[in-house]
């Protein structure tokens, strides 16, 4: 048996779909960071600033997601008019269109409430209402792919959770990064103002550990069982094992090991250790954040992009055809 790539490479032909999935998940994480920072505003000096700049950043990232989503279509003008054209509600693309639409309104409203000022409880209420919708956006990016049931890598069991985790990790990193920039341009701030970035950085470290655990489980599942597409009579009895080889030892291996595991997850984890050591030495947070935390956030974002690229590129390996003559059945007479 051998893997056969039957597909045209529509989604991996350009970076549109990986970037759409990345920015979609990123927006979820940024919104989460903004709302949590908003809720903890009284406790942490500087949290309000992080929440505010994050809410503005979510508009930018969602706009980028929308751009890449629309740009990958063969007929973008029909995609833009999705309320008119999307009629199949069994499709995750239709559901996703509405999630993106609802998420856009909530992100805009939340940012507008930050911009205009006014009652904080209204803003926080909008944030809490928007949170499940935005988190669903990250989950949906995984569910969207997992409907490709004959693509072994697009597991409905692992991808939604992995993309949610990655969305939260990258979103927190992006919030920390824009928060850091905002704090820097505000000039010298008290140590406590920088501590919010410190906490975001710690949270990022925790989510990186979770992501590593999920990727390990995912790869173990692919390598071991591989029984992902049992629906095909002659399809993919070992599709998972093939795609495991493709990702970890084949053409995608450098991107996976050096990109996602190395630069995207392990390096930020090592920088987290450095942060702990500097905590112990009680260095000023402001400079430590710039020298170590900012590069760590940037690496996390790079890893998030590469993870989406690998998942989408790996989709080019479809369920391999297999021909075990002993199990060929006699087609029934009824014709169905």
């Amino acid at each position: 048996m051998e893997p056969i790539i039957l597909w045209q490479t529509k989604w991996s032909y350009s970076l549109h779909v990986p970037l759409y999935l990345f920015f979609g998940g990123l927006t979820s994480g940024i919104f989460l960071a903004a709302v949590v920072a908003d809720l903890l505003e009284r406790k942490w000096q500087g949290a309000a600033l992080v929440s505010k700049v994050s809410s503005y950043s979510a508009i930018v990232t969602l706009a980028l997601a929308g751009f890449f989503l629309t740009a990958h279509l063969g007929k973008p003008e029909r995609g833009l008019a999705f309320p008119l054209f999307f009629t199949n509600y069994d499709s995750w693309m239709t559901r996703g269109g509405w999630i993106v639409g609802a998420g856009t309104l909530l992100v805009l409203l939340y940012a507008a409430l930050w911009y205009r000022g006014g009652a904080a409880w209204v803003r926080r209420l909008v944030g809490l209402v928007g949170l499940p919708v935005l988190l669903m956006l990250a989950v949906y990016t995984g569910l969207l792919l997992s409907r490709g049931t004959f693509v072994p890598l697009w597991s409905s069991k692992y991808l939604p959770v992995l993309f949610l985790n990655s969305g939260v990790t990258t979103g927190l990193a992006a919030s920390g990064l824009v928060g850091l920039v905002a704090l820097w341009f505000r000039g010298p701030q008290p140590q406590t103002a920088h501590s919010v970035v410190r906490w975001i950085s710690m949270a990022v470290g925790l989510f990186i550990l979770l992501e590593l655990f999920e990727i390990y489980n995912f790869m173990t599942y692919l390598a071991g069982s591989g029984q992902h597409a049992p629906t095909g009579q002659f399809l993919a009895p070992k599709g998972g094992a093939h795609v495991y080889q493709y990702v970890t030892r084949g053409a995608l291996a450098p991107w996976f090991w050096w990109g996602v595991i190395g630069l995207g997850l392990t390096a930020p984890l090592l920088l987290t250790l450095v942060e702990f050591l500097l905590d112990w030495r009680a260095r000023p947070l402001r400079w430590r954040n710039v020298l170590f935390t900012a590069p760590k956030f940037a690496l996390v974002l790079l890893g998030g992009i590469l993870l989406r690229c690998i998942i989408v590129w790996g989709g080019d390996l479809s369920a391999p055809l297999d021909f075990p003559p002993s199990v060929w059945p006699i087609p029934p007479a009824s014709g169905g």
């Binding site: 597909w7 989604w11 279509l73 029909r78 693309m93 792919l145 409907r147 004959f150 629906t231 479809s318």
Partner: peptide, 14 residues
């Protein structure tokens, strides 16, 4: 058709 390519990845036969 909007040319999204979703069907391409759903189809077991390409």
């Amino acid at each position: 058709c909007i040319g999204c390519g979703y069907c391409l990845y759903a189809c077991p036969f390409g």
